[in-house]
Structures are given as structure tokens and as C-alpha cells.
Amino acid sequence: MNHRARTALFLVGGLGLLCFYVWGLHGLPGFGHYPGPYGDLINSLTVFERHATDAVTAVNFDYRGFDTLGEEFILFASVMGANLLLRKQKDDREEDPPLDQAEDRVVPPTSDAVRVTGLALVLPIVVFGLYTISHGQLTPGGGFQGGVILASMPLIIYLCGDYKSFDHVTSHVLSEITEALGAGGYAIAGLISIMFGLNYLTNFIPLGQTGDVLSSGTILLISVLTGLEVAGGLVVLMISFFRQSLVYRKTDEESRGPR
């Protein structure tokens, strides 16, 4: 199909979509008029049923816990797929490495301001990530957000240093283990519920005092496990991409094998 036919087909389809969409909009309750009742029910029940003050995290890791497990495995599968695609392949080292800069210019070194700011940010980022993961049941946060914050730490080190320092603080094996622990732990947490004679992923830990960090039972546990998986998965992705773009073309046969 050539370019013109493709665009024409798109325009016809887009016009049809537009007609149906505008038609459908007239049946919607309008922006700012959420009709409920599902969200309202959850909003009024989470504090009493789950002792969690963050309804979003409660939905994610408890009311919709099984769906989130599925989404976690989408994440897991994507990370593994990318990791597999970017592995060192047989003909990788045979490629003639193009130098990553123009021949008559040198790459300017990272400025001191960037280095100092970046290094000063490393510890706060780790603390903030752990805080976000562990307080997800109380205030906005949880495993997904905190995991991403944690995973940005090695990236900051790469930005204010170089690939060597990034390679130094990350470990492919450890990141993969972390990711697998997170994903597997989530599924196992559901199985433990079954061992207690409950439905899959039903809460089996005492709910604790509303407002405490150690409250809301399995929500906290699953939040931490999700944080592990997201952080591990994103670091695995970074390592794969960095190796693919920086290392594999440059090294020869014996210096670096796939771990």
C-alpha cells in the first residue's frame, strides 16, 4: 500500500471515528460530573476496610490486586523481551565501531556544577524512593512511583559521571534478581492467602492502626514487592541499552561477555 492510499484510508477512518466519538460524547455525564458509584464506594470504604488512607494504592494493590498482578507481568515480560533483544549477539563484535563523535572535535567534559548537584542528589533520591514506596498506603505514592524514583539513581550517576561509574554502581545479576523477587513475591503473596483458606490475594496480615506506616496489611507488602520489581526492571533496561549502545560495538571478543 503506497503512502497516498494509506493516508486516504486513515482520513476515512479518522472521520468515522470523529463522528462516532462526538455522538458518544452526548451520552457522557460531562467533565467534572463523575457519577459514581464505584469510586465513591471505594473512597468511603478504604479507611474502614483496609485501614489505608490512600484510595489509589488500595485500589491498585488490593481491590484490583489481581489486575495489577497482570500488569506487573506485562512489565516483567517487556523488560525480559528488551533484555533478550539487546543481548550480545554473535556478530556484534565484528561490526566496525563508528566513533561516537566528530573526528575534529572532542566531547566537552561534564561540568563541575552538574557533577556536584548530581552527586548531592543521589542519597536524597534513594531516601525519597524508599519513603514513597513505604508510605504508599498513607499518602500519594506506592511501589510503581517509588520504584521509578529508585531506578533514577544510577541514571543520575551516569549523567554526572560516565558509563564506568554507572557500571560500577549497578549489577545486572542483582537487578534481575530484584526484579524476579518482586514479580514472584507478588504472585506468592496471593498463594499465601489461599493457604490461609482465603481467596487469592485477600489480605492476611493484621491491618494495624490507620495512619501508621506499618498498616493496611498486604497493601504495604505488595507495594514494597512492586517497588522492587519496577526498580529492578528499569535498571535492567538501562543496563541493556547502555551495553548495546556503548559497549558491544567497542569491545573485542574476550573483554566482555554477556553476564
Binding site: Y34, G36, Y38, G39, D40, I42, N43, T46, A55, V56, T57, A58, V59, N60, R64, T68, E71, I74, L75, S78, V79, G81, A82, L85, L86, G142, F144, Q145, G147, V148, V230, G233, L234, L237, S240, F241, Q244, S245
Partner: peptide, 30 residues
Amino acid sequence: AVDPVVQALALTDVVVEAAVTALLLAFAVQ
């Protein structure tokens, strides 16, 4: 309060999308 269910959907979507994008970019690299 606003509906927490759609917010939960959006937030998982953001993270999962990042990983899926990485997979697609890996395809592009190859």
C-alpha cells in the same frame, strides 16, 4: 473526592508503558 479507580489505572499504565516503549525501542535498535 474524585474517582480513585481511574487514577490507579492511569498510574500503572504510565509505568507499564515505559517498559513497553523500551521493548519497542529494542526492536528498533535490532
